[in-house]
C-alpha cells in the first residue's frame, strides 16, 4: 500500500514545475557555457593582442640596437677612412694619386648608404618628437630614386601640417605610424591613377576622461570622384587598418569625400601628456 502510494503519478502542476526547473537549469548551464566561451575568447583575443604588441616592441628594440651597431661600427670606420684620405692624399694605400678623388667619392657614398641604413632601421627622432619624425620621413620619402615612394615623377609634393610641439610618444608607436605611412603611400603610388594633391596633418583632439587623442590625417586628392572611388576600392588596406588597431592601439578610418580619399589614424595619448 505504501509502495503503491509512492508510485503515485505526479500531478500536472508537479510535472510543469519539474519541467521548468530542468529548463531553467539547462538554460543556466548554456548561459554559463556561453559566457565562459565569450570570456575565453575575449581573454584569448586580449592575450593575442598583448603578445603581438610585445613582439612588435621587441622587434622595435632589436632594430634600434642594430641601428646603434651600424652607427658605432661601420659609420665610425668610414669616418676614419675619410679623414685619412683627406689628411694624407699622397699616401692613399699605395694607389696612384689620380685615384684619390674616386676613393673619396666611394667613401662618401658608403657613408651616405650607412647613414640611410641606420635611419631605415631606426628612423630619426623616434624618441624625441613625432612631428620631427614625420618630417624626416617625408624628406626621405620624397628623395628621387625611392621606388614606389613620393619622389617618383608625376607625384605631387606632400603638404605637411605639423605642430611645433607634441607629447611624448612611445618610440614603438612613432615607428608604427611611420611604417603605416610608408605602406599607405607605397600602395597608393602603385595604383594606375596617381593623386593630384597629397597632404598630411597631425593634430590633437579632446578625448574621454580628459586624455587627448592624436589624429593623423592623410588626404589624397584625385582628378575625379569616380577615380577616387575606384582607387579606394582597389586598395586592400584592411590588414593595415587592423594592424594599426592592434599595435597602436588605435583606430584607422578610411573614407571618401568627393574626389578626396582620407585615412584618419586615431590613438589615445599617454595619460601624463599635457596639451601642446
Amino acid at each position: 500500500m505504501a509502495l503503491f502510494q509512492l508510485e503515485k503519478r505526479p500531478t500536472a502542476t508537479e510535472l510543469s514545475s519539474h519541467y521548468f526547473a530542468l529548463a531553467s537549469l539547462s538554460s543556466f548551464v548554456i548561459s554559463v557555457l556561453l559566457i565562459s566561451v565569450l570570456v575565453g575568447l575575449a581573454v584569448f583575443h586580449w592575450q593575442t593582442q598583448q603578445a603581438l604588441r610585445w613582439w612588435f616592441e621587441q622587434q622595435h628594440q632589436w632594430l634600434c640596437r642594430e641601428a646603434e651597431q651600424v652607427r658605432n661600427g661601420p659609420l665610425q670606420e668610414t669616418f676614419v677612412m675619410r679623414r685619412q684620405l683627406e689628411m694624407n692624399p699622397n699616401e692613399t694605400l699605395g694607389k696612384p694619386l689620380s685615384q684619390h678623388p674616386t676613393w673619396m667619392a666611394q667613401v662618401t657614398q658608403l657613408n651616405g648608404q650607412l647613414v640611410r641604413l641606420s635611419d631605415e632601421l631606426s628612423p630619426p627622432y623616434l624618441e624625441t618628437s613625432l612631428p620631427l619624425a614625420i618630417q624626416a620621413w617625408a624628406q626621405e620619402a620624397e628623395l628621387p630614386g625611392m621606388p614606389g615612394m613620393l619622389g617618383m615623377p608625376g607625384v605631387p609634393g606632400l603638404m605637411l601640417c605639423l605642430p611645433n610641439c607634441w607629447h611624448p610618444e612611445p618610440p614603438a608607436r612613432v615607428s608604427l605610424i611611420l611604417s603605416m605611412l610608408t605602406y599607405l603611400m607605397r600602395l597608393s603610388m602603385e595604383t594606375a591613377d596617381l593623386p593630384t594633391a597629397m597632404s598630411l596633418a597631425l593634430s590633437q583632439q579632446a578625448g574621454w576622461g580628459g586624455r587627448g587623442v592624436g589624429v593623423l590625417e592623410v588626404r589624397l586628392d584625385y582628378a575625379t570622384t569616380a577615380i577616387a572611388a575606384a582607387v579606394g576600392r582597389s586598395l586592400n588596406l584592411q590588414p593595415l587598418i587592423r594592424t594599426f588597431q592592434v599595435l597602436a592601439p588605435g583606430r584607422c578610418i578610411q573614407r571618401q569625400r568627393q574626389q578626396r580619399l582620407i585615412w584618419q589614424f586615431r590613438w589615445r595619448l599617454l595619460p601624463d601628456s599635457s596639451a601642446p
Binding site: 652607427r71 658605432n72 659609420l75 665610425q76 669616418f79 647613414v115 641606420s118 630619426p124 627622432y125 624618441e127 624625441t128 618628437s129 620631427l132 624626416a136
Partner: peptide, 9 residues
Amino acid sequence: SANAKSLVR
C-alpha cells in the same frame, strides 16, 4: 656625432 639628430632633446 654620427647621430646628431637626438640632440633635439
